[in-house]
Amino acid sequence: MKYYVGIDIGSISTKGVVIDENNKIIASDYIWTNASPIDASKRLVNSLIKKSKEEWLNNIYGIGTTGSARKLIGKIIGATSIKNEITAHAVGTISKYPDVSTIIEIGGQDSKIIIIKNGVVIDYAMNTLCAAGTGAFLSSQAKRLGIEVKEIQDYYKRANNPAKIAARCTVFAESDMIHKAQIGYKKEDLIAGLCNAIVENYTNNFIRGRRIEDKIVFQGGVSRNSGVVESFKSKLNKEIYVDKDSHLLGALGVAIISKSESKGDKVKLNIKDIEYKIREKECAGCSNNCQVVYIYEEEKLLDTIGNRCENCKTNI
């Protein structure tokens, strides 16, 4: 049996899966990135190795990375496939729901919509300029109201008269919410208003003229919040599916991509327990002045990210 590893290094959390030839997840883990992707990947790889059985550890034929730190970690870990998160999420979701048409994804700092037709992504949109209406928005407002993010769904269920809150901007939403609280709205109504505001923001920004067809799968950290899921259901008037492994679908997708791109050579899952140094510098090698990230493996230059030409490697 051949095995494949997928690692999704996101802004908030780092996820890893090991799959077999039938795309079945045989090991997985989910840890916080804590703004240190190299450290998080080390911990993740070590924990996957610990959970491993001898059989798969020696029969890996592909390693894929995705997420915002995909290139950095991909280079350190020697990944065979490095893929953007949009394609990875789409592939992961299609493997579980072959008839999926729409993927709604709301994560910690970004939200996206992915439209799929016959198993191929045909359109997508991603938030560009600001993070209003994402997980970060929800958690900061929950903090303001003095409740835990996990409690949001319980409050949502108790709400009878959701407050109307503008979600186009986190700062405006906050002043809106405080104003509503001062005039006597209950906490549960405010929370329900927030969940509705996220959905409102999403439909205004992403759905705009796109035809939303069944089946709709909702992913990302915010999909764990049943308040937002309920709000989506009533807004779109359609069934919304949330997978139990929804947080792993990006990692699963990139593992499947590494399977399809595998050249049939065995690879070793290994992240050396040595210090990786990252130096960021504006290169002066030519007029492009690229912001180059230099990755050093114990003083030896391993690779660079962000360069447009090779001059930066000689001009350190």
């Binding site: 795309n23 949009i86 299609i94 191929v120 992504v121 499947i256």
Partner: peptide, 14 residues
């Protein structure tokens, strides 16, 4: 742009 390239390519991985 990378995901747009994937859309143009229209490759099916599964």
């Amino acid at each position: 742009m990378e995901s747009f390239s994937d859309i143009i390519e229209g490759r099916i991985y599964i």
